[in-house]
Design a protein around this nucleic acid. Structure first.
Lengths: 192, 192, 192, 192
DNA sequence: TATGAATGAGCCTTCATTCAT
DNA sequence: CATGAATGAAGGCTCATTCAT
């Protein structure tokens, strides 16, 4: 049980440390000490410190892509789809809040090619999200007086900002925040 | 006169580099090379690399505090005050977008005591902002069904997120974004 | 039968890699990958990476000793013996050119006691070779105006240098080179 | 006087150690300890350990090129030119015997682009040397029954091999070896 | 016999900072 | 005021070797 999954333990530990102290201030030595293994073990499972970081991005991007795709595929009306997407994005961001902290703060620490991959996948996600906005505008349920990029940024900023203020286990539940932030967004988005 | 320029040049150069490559990936050597001075000169004006970073936080925090205080001091109604505050915050964030990039990404690179000071001053700002929300709720113009921290975060996230998507000099003007994001926020905030 | 092949395959592969990239730049992992076995297998047949290297020296030294001894034992005149020895040394060096590459470049990578053994055996070989020179001088067929060590070095340098310029399978055949280098050597060596 | 020329001291020390123990077995720490400085000092003057190695090749190649060019430029007959070139090559190789030791053993430790440069410059040298052989053949003073590459290798091997047997300060003087090896070479080279 | 996960010492290199000039 | 050579601690990473299975 103890050494059962060294790789997972290393992933868990590194996210924890990267979120708390930042990628640059976390040494490989700190990670292996915290995980109770040696450097050799880490480099047996990961090719570099950068891999440890990229794994976090990969996990989050894969998850978000799957959720978004699944919700859109249900074929619900734009407003309803948007509500589900937004609530899911907030909920998921809370579930993976440590990963999110790293995700938004440490992009510039990725190697160049990894950064490109991350940006490409984020653009894809963005495009799918934007698609819902466009459909809502065509259906006359979303306002059209504000450019799409502004409408999109107005929501994306929320899950992004969570790690700066929200404490899991605090007074406000995960579900409540998800519902409230979604509500605020949809209120602003609504066609008059 | 000359020395004044050197110090300012170092400040300008370091923000630029920190924003582009991150604090950790920017070496003191790169900064002095880009500024066209030598290390000795840098250490004449700044005690450490950390000072260069803190200066950015100090500049932004001072500015935001001044603007917020000034606007509140006008004694306008809550909704009107809020509109001015939000527009100003977005506009200012765009004017200082490179500083903002560093501000939100590099907190964990600050030395411990500097970090505490930054957090204290941000809390103060937050409190003043929150004060407007409370006043608006008491006046019956802002909705009360959503906790204050969520309402605050819902706006703070916007200027924060600007550096991730907004390009100064692009299709959407600084004033337009400020008005649009403020509009969206106030639409959500409005009591029904 | 199978295990025998594994050991030989490892020996073959390691010479190949050592010759191409040098001993230091060749990792044990590369060797086992190229040989299609695992590390455990390698360490089953060899005690260390150093053993793999020493084996090359042992093979070459044994071979050269056998050939030299055999030729000398024929009891031919010095000049004739020398011709046969030189031609054989060049031919053999070409046949084992990869081993030769390693032999001359990687001595300092041997462990101390192994190095001593190699040096002892090379001295022995040298002594036997020198014996032919002395005999030729006594018989009046080899020049005596140049010190023996210089005469010896003048030939040893040739097989040594082969790996720096000769390509097996190129325009000049193995036999031709052997005859030509021997010819050049004997021309210089000849008493006037 | 003591720290007067740290860069030269580092160059001297590193050649010494590379020649004695090999490049791979010499650590940067050993070099700086032996030179009485710290690692920072070394990396102030050299970009990498590889630079320290390449500097040796550069020094030798520059020297050899200069000497060869100068001698050829005198416009003497081929046999006379060849005698001067060979004697100089042996003499110089003895003067720089530690550099030579490294030169011939550590090529494979050079970085890829550096290796290419070294090979290009060696080819140039070879071409100029070969030019003398061709001229001598045309003039009827050098034998023509052996291919040029073999004739060239027959001499190049000698300075190459020096570090394996010659001890400066031993019984045979630098000038004597130079004259003797040259004599042996020319005796073999002579047209009949 | 053979595996390959894990070790741990050591390596090259970077870099913020200092200080004699 | 300003220089830039030199420091020295720390960092990421490699790799020959071991050992439980």
């Amino acid at each position: 049980m103890k050494t059962m999954n060294i790789k997972e333990e290393l992933a868990r530990t590194s996210v924890e440390l990267f979120a708390r102290q930042g990628y640059a201030k976390t040494s490989v030595q700190q990670i292996v000490d915290a995980a109770g293994v040696t450097k050799g073990a880490l480099y047996h499972y990961f090719n570099s410190k950068d891999d440890l970081l990229f794994d976090i991005y990969d996990r989050i991007l894969t998850l978000q892509h799957e959720h978004l795709t699944e919700i859109i595929s249900r074929g619900l009306p734009a407003a309803e789809t948007m509500r589900l997407v937004c609530e899911d994005l907030v909920s998921t961001s809370i579930d993976w809040i440590r990963e999110g902290t790293v995700f938004f703060r440490s992009q510039h620490m990725l190697s160049e090619d990894r950064l490109e991959e991350v940006q490409r996948r984020r653009r894809e996600f963005n495009k799918a999200f934007t698609g819902i906005l466009v459909r809502g505008q065509e259906d006359g349920v979303f306002r059209t007086d504000i450019p799409i990029p502004v409408l999109a940024a107005n929501f994306f900023s929320d899950p992004h900002y969570l790690s700066y203020w929200y404490s899991p286990g605090g007074a406000i539940s995960r579900e409540a925040v998800a519902a409230q932030l979604t509500d605020l967004y949809l209120a602003g988005l609504q066609a008059k």
